[in-house]
């Protein structure tokens, strides 16, 4: 009896929370198929009687959705590649290599984590301007290859590396394996879960990044989805319903991505056990 009651309480709590979390997204979907004016109806229309799927088709007339998606994917993928190449290297240098700079290096990583981005934002903007690279993807992508702004990810990977027994590394060293070989053939394969997790996190962050594209992109053809939608929002004659449809299309891919990466993703985080 008690157990059954407990079960009911647990489920109802979970369902209640799920409803709260899902409601705004359902509102997004329902609005995206409303016809013009229904959004302002009072009392509101929760579910439009006749869904207007045309809104989705209209998005393609208003913004170059494929182009924007392509740009966003390009930037996101390059960022992921950049961080996945550079971050594990540093993480390795501040976990399993016993060298002079180890502690300072780790402190530097933590420092970048705490540094407000505003401090570096202006000088970087000036530098990219002087280099004539504003308007290209270089300011958005190049830093990733040098782990700039990736303190959090380096930290996560480093914590994961720490859970791998040093004896494993030592044994390989005694066998005469080169350090890079140890890294590439022992460490990395063992760290797939965390690499996957970080990859997903980086992708999500790059996919939805707003300030970067806002500052550095200024040609409609090179806009990302975030910026494209923002520009779209600022015009007077745009219908909100279409904007909602566009937002839904913007959000859907990452929900799908998350759905497929979910197991790996949660596993990765669980295994890290970020310990301060």
């Amino acid at each position: 009896m008690v157990e059954a009651a407990q079960k009911i309480v647990r489920y109802s709590l979970l369902v209640l929370f799920s409803v709260v979390f899902a409601a705004p997204l359902l509102w997004l979907l329902s609005t995206s198929v409303k016809k013009q004016g229904e959004l302002f109806a009072s009392p509101p229309v929760f579910f439009p009687k006749v869904p207007r799927w045309q809104n989705y088709a209209d998005v393609f007339d208003t913004i170059n959705f494929f182009r924007l998606t392509g740009n966003t994917v390009l930037i996101s993928v390059l960022t992921v590649i950049g961080i996945l190449i550079s971050a594990p290297l540093v993480a390795y240098a501040c976990s399993h290599i016993e060298w002079k700079g180890k502690k300072i290096l780790f402190a530097a990583v933590i420092a970048t984590l705490l540094l407000p981005y505003q401090v570096t934002m202006l000088p970087l903007y000036v530098i990219w301007t002087r280099l004539g690279l504003v308007g290209t993807y270089v300011p958005l992508v190049l830093p990733a290859f040098l782990s700039a702004g990736a303190g959090y990810y380096v930290f996560m990977i480093r914590q994961f590396f720490m859970t791998i027994p040093n004896s494993l590394v030592q044994a390989a060293r005694i066998d005469g394996a080169s350090e890079f070989r140890i890294y590439a053939q022992i460490m990395l394969p063992l760290c797939k879960p965390i690499i996957a997790t970080v990859g997903v996190l980086v992708f999500l962050a790059a996919w939805s990044d707003f300030l970067g594209p806002l500052l550095y992109l200024n040609d409609k053809d090179s806009y990302t989805l975030s910026l494209g939608l923002y520009a779209f929002m600022q015009t007077h004659y745009v219908e909100w319903e279409k904007l909602m449809a566009a937002s839904a299309m913007f959000t859907l891919p990452i929900i799908v991505l998350f759905f497929f990466a979910q197991k790996q993703f949660i596993e990765g985080i669980t295994l890290t056990g970020i310990k301060g």
Binding site: F21, L28, L204, S208, L225, Y230, M244, A248, T251, F258
Partner: peptide
Amino acid sequence: RTLFYVPSIVPVIASSLV
């Protein structure tokens, strides 16, 4: 878990709009 987590990955631009 998916339901609880998904809101956090909705891009700011879309979530603000919603």
